[in-house]
Design a protein around this nucleic acid. Structure first.
Length: 485
DNA sequence: AAGGGGTGCAACCGCTGCGGG
DNA sequence: TCCCGCAGCGGTTGCACCCCT
């Protein structure tokens, strides 16, 4: 591609009046893009046709890329990011405008079922469509279907196996602190490949490295972080979007919790909206879904999984963005039972299972003893209560806890069980009622399993190895650290 | 007719990966 | 090896438009 170069001077002369075009330009001074060159301020807000023309002309002359030089070569008062976005989403050739066709919609649904919120990847498969367009469409679709009470993934949508490349195989890679995006991918992949996860416990071990890092800094990190997920993340407190309305009570803000190395930061590794590993549910997989509950779950309502509709940007309970079909409730419980009774993986359509599940009546609620409402009583109550239930754990839960190496029986109905003690009979639970959250949230909502909770079982088994002491004194210390430090 | 809420699109923001110095 | 800048991605927000009451 060759373009006739134009001098900066001629550019300037050509577009010298740009600043006067928009009366609102002065009010739209960008803060996200730093001003460069010419001492100009950067404009924000909608693009004018003149600005479009300038940008088009620039790309014709200089080609795509080097977006930060646009401002230098033209009088366009836009930052590079803004230019790139404008070009990519609106100005570049061969863009397809207008409503999505049925074929495109179907493709989006199928791709989303496979890859989650990988808008850019989806856009590659939809010529003429942009990632932003697809993203907006998806969010709109979610809301629309939610309102209509329809399943997110309609019947007939085939959820195919994700490509389980060697690249993502847990045994071949190291999880580093900065490898969050890849980490997120892994967790997302785990969503549909939970059988692999359970066949290869190395996966959990690798992920546990991060979790262990947190717990090594603060022995009760797992406890507290789960509480955080209940109080804050699961209710959209970590981010505010138009889909969210609930403000969590009591718990400290990230700023209050401090800076680097704080529990909250650690938590964000798993829970922040952008880093959130989505749902990681064993029962997501058709092999296991709808039949067995095999690990600790963040679970919320009596009707739990309903229609599979969870807005992408709206965290379901537990702050997990359910992007993949998820089957949360099971009729059986216990990992051993699940192991022994699960037939060979059925090849039935995952979405058929979704619909079947949706149509099935909600499971009976099992009210665990000694539960309390901690989501609205705060962290302190949780910690105190945990100490309390630790003392009585042996008596209270031995009969209701699956003692299968840290794989707990799954609680049902409006409660969140958080593993906190050593595996087996000595396990203690923080039982968190979530009914209040239900009321604030949606009447229908999917259950989720957070990976860190999922890994709690592994952690329980390994905590001795890592020398983690988890007793009431630790709780006290942690509380002191949290509140005082 | 007016206004209030809902909706959808466009744009912004923050984060991350990558490459070059 | 580290630092810095750029490009890209995904989440979030702003706002104009539409619809309903």
């Amino acid at each position: 591609m060759s373009y006739t170069m134009m001098t900066d001077e001629s550019d300037d002369a050509m577009y010298s009046s740009i600043y006067n075009e928009s009366p609102s330009a002065a009010d739209n001074i960008g803060s996200g893009c730093t001003s460069r060159g010419k001492g100009s301020v950067l404009k924000k807000g909608p693009w004018t046709s003149t600005e479009d023309g300038i940008l088009i002309d620039y790309v014709k002359r200089h080609g795509e890329g080097n977006w930060n030089t646009v401002q230098k070569h033209t009088s366009l008062a836009r930052c590079g990011k803004s230019c790139r976005l404008r070009w990519a989403n609106h100005l570049r050739p061969n863009l397809k405008k207008g409503a999505f066709s049925k074929e495109e919609e179907q493709l989006i649904v199928e791709m989303h079922a496979r890859m989650g919120n990988k808008w850019a990847q989806m856009a590659e498969h939809l010529p003429g469509r942009t990632d932003n367009e697809i993203k907006n469409y998806w969010n709109t679709r979610i809301k629309r279907r939610q309102r209509a009470g329809l399943p997110l993934y309609p019947p007939g949508t085939h959820v195919e196996d994700l490509h389980w490349s060697q690249e993502y195989h847990p045994s071949t890679r190291n999880v580093t602190g900065v490898d969050r995006r890849r980490h997120q991918d892994i967790l997302q992949l785990a969503n549909s490949k939970a059988n692999v996860l359970f066949d290869d416990l190395n996966f959990a071990n690798v992920l546990f490295e991060e979790l262990n890092f947190a717990t090594s800094l603060l022995p009760v990190a797992s406890h507290i972080s789960d509480m955080f997920s209940c109080n804050m993340l699961g209710t959209g407190a970590s981010s505010s979007s138009r889909y969210e309305s609930y403000t969590p009570p009591i718990l400290p803000s990230p700023k209050q919790l401090g800076g680097s190395g704080s529990l909250f930061n650690i938590r964000q590794e798993f829970q922040s909206p952008q880093k959130n590993p989505r749902s990681c549910s064993i029962s997501d997989h058709p092999m296991y879904g709808n039949h067995h509950q095999s690990d600790v779950m963040i679970q919320d309502s009596h009707h739990t999984f309903t229609d599979g509709m969870v807005p992408t940007s709206k965290p379901s309970f537990g702050a997990v963005k359910l992007e993949l079909p998820s089957f949360q409730y099971s009729e059986a419980s216990g990992f051993d039972q699940w192991k022994t009774t699960t037939p060979s993986p059925p090849q039935s359509d995952l979405l058929d299972s979704v619909d079947t599940y949706i149509q099935s009546p909600p499971p009976l609620e099992i009210v665990e003893p000694d539960c309390f409402s901690s989501c609205d009583t705060g962290l302190l109550d949780m910690l105190l209560h945990e100490a309390k239930i630790k003392a009585s754990a042996k008596h209270s839960f031995s009969s209701t806890t699956c003692a299968t190496d840290g794989i707990q029986d799954v609680p049902r109905g409006g409660e969140t069980h958080i593993t906190s003690g050593a595996g087996g009979n000595s396990s203690a639970f923080a039982v968190v009622k979530t009914e209040e959250l239900d009321q604030v949230w949606e009447p229908k909502r999917a259950d989720v399993v957070r990976p860190d909770v999922l890994l709690a079982s592994s952690w329980q088994d390994q905590q001795g190895r890592f020398g983690i002491v988890r007793d009431s004194s630790s709780l006290s210390d942690a509380l002191a650290l949290l509140l005082g430090g």
